[in-house]
Each structure stands twice: as structure tokens, then as C-alpha cells.
């Protein structure tokens, strides 16, 4: 309500954010500068921990995740680009290590499957609408059955 309370709430929120940021820095690595650290955070957030498979490398506390973070860091020190580092891990751990699946023939169904289902739904709707429009235009065919039947159809 009051301004003071709002301010306290805001402070608490900020503190919570700070705690979150601290939790992410699981192990301190000797970054050259802040930009490199940000790049490291960004990159490890796109990579999957193989042990706890719904966590990113950045978030995971697993032993292997720590090793892989160190490996990513080592490759960064060698001047490898983000894509090169990703490829390095994909070569060893398959595409699964990437959180975002790449667009390639064996993932087409994954990427476009939802669109296919949407299209199928659209076809069903279009057919239904057209049939109903035709039935309405002809003033209700005898073939369409008795009136109560039409009512149950409207419920759908």
C-alpha cells in the first residue's frame, strides 16, 4: 500500500534476483573480462547437461557439467568461436547436447509437426464450414436427417 512497503517489496525482489545471479556462478573461472564472462554464460545456457537432462550446463551442479563448463572455458581461451565449441560438443555427445534442436532432415517432423497438425485442423474446419454453408443454402436437405439431429451437430 504505502510507499515504504512498496520500496521494501522492491528491495526484496532485487535481493532475490541477486541471489539468483550468485547461484548461477557455481564455480569461479578466471575470465579475461566481463564480456567474456557474459559470452560464457550465454553459451552454457544453450547447452544441455547430459546427466541431469533438463538442466543447462550453466545451471547444473553435476560433476560432468562442471567438467564440460571447464572444457567450454578452455576452448574459449583457445579462441574458438561459439559455433566451433558447440560442434566440438556435438561431435562427442550428439545433437542432444544442444537445447535448441538444429533444423535438419531428422528434425523436420519435430519442427514442422505442429504446423502439420494445425493444417489438418484447418482442413477439417474448412470442410465443415463449407458443408454447413451448403446445407444452409439449400434450406436443409431431407438427406440431412430430422431436426433434432441438426441440433446435436450444432453442439459440437
Amino acid at each position: 500500500m504505502s510507499r515504504a512497503r512498496l520500496r521494501a517489496l522492491l528491495a526484496a525482489l532485487l535481493l532475490a534476483c541477486a541471489a539468483g545471479a550468485a547461484a548461477q556462478a557455481i564455480d569461479p573461472l578466471p575470465f579475461r573480462d566481463h564480456a567474456q564472462e557474459l559470452r560464457f554464460q550465454h553459451l552454457t545456457q544453450q547447452l544441455r547437461c547430459l546427466v541431469c537432462q533438463n538442466e543447462t550446463l550453466a545451471d547444473s551442479n553435476a560433476d560432468l557439467a562442471r567438467d564440460m563448463r571447464h572444457e567450454v572455458f578452455r576452448l574459449m581461451q583457445q579462441g574458438k568461436s561459439d559455433d566451433e565449441i558447440k560442434q566440438y560438443l556435438v561431435d562427442r555427445y550428439s545433437d542432444f547436447v544442444l537445447y535448441k534442436p538444429p533444423l535438419q532432415p531428422n528434425t523436420w517432423l519435430l519442427w514442422f509437426g505442429p504446423l502439420l497438425i494445425l493444417a489438418a485442423g484447418a482442413v477439417v474446419v474448412a470442410v465443415n464450414v463449407r458443408r454447413r454453408a451448403r446445407a444452409g443454402a439449400s434450406g436443409g436437405d431431407a438427406a440431412d436427417g430430422p431436426a433434432p439431429d441438426n441440433n446435436t451437430e450444432d453442439d459440437w
Binding site: L50, V51, D63, L64, D67, M68, E71, R92, Y93, S94
Partner: peptide, 13 residues
Amino acid sequence: RSGRTAMDFGVYG
């Protein structure tokens, strides 16, 4: 001991 070579093998457990 470090697990460094294991990473080349794609060992994850």
C-alpha cells in the same frame, strides 16, 4: 582422473 579424455569418448556416466 580428470575425466578429460572421457569427454572425447562422449562418456557421460
